[in-house]
Amino acid sequence: MTALLAAEIRRMTSRRLFRVVAALTVLAIVIASLIVALRSRSTSGIAGDRRFHLTALAVALEGTSPVLIIAAWLLGASFIGADWHAGTVTTLLTWEPRRLRVMMAKLAGCLTVVFLLVIAVQILLAGGLALAAAVRGTTEGVDVAWMRHTAGIALRVAVLSGVGSAIGFAIASVARNTAAALGVGFGYTVIVENLVRGLRPQWVPWLVGDNAVMFISGQSAGPSFHRTILQAGLLLVAYAVALLIVSAAVFRARDVT
């Protein structure tokens, strides 16, 4: 099982999409930190405080979270989609015929890499902005409570990215195809969620999008509903687990041709 997992992690990290995503985010972080540093004024004058405050990091993390989560979802879907496309599932099953094991290893490899990637990206972002704040801005207001709050957001973004990649993985594994999973995801977020918001507002507390916003920011995006961060998180994890169970059952039963 460890050899299987190690192979999947290795495969995930050598994927082109993974490398492109990683390279692009590093680039974006460097550029963003530079812009922040350049625009920051080192004095606070009559015109108001125009210094860059490191305390804005929390907002920055929330702001970047949708991009990270969508990237995670893409990584999850394309990881298994590419496997089906290349026909390598067949090869692997002739070395390890226990399908559940194979699927668990693939999922675990994907989740590990996505989670670590998102954490690393956020640490990098924090580092870049901290540097900008130290050189041309201010770290005023940075204390233990703030750190705990910010770290909480970063951790939740990473967890939600994991959930996102698991959902992408589950759909692409049933469809045996990345594009189909992208279509389903797009159709759901753009069409289903908006239809529900328009036609059945009482169902909004069950939508993925609204719970995701709630989970990251602690506030509801649209019409308010009551749910704690933990509840929202558990609901999203439950959705992902349900989809994974379905996809595992399908993977066990269906012919591999």
Partner: peptide, 18 residues
């Protein structure tokens, strides 16, 4: 079918380790 983005050797090594 083997992984196109790994070398032939790497592909066999990953399978072999199983």
């Amino acid at each position: 079918a083997l992984y196109p983005r790994f070398s032939g050797r790497r592909n066999l090594e990953l399978l072999g380790r199983l």
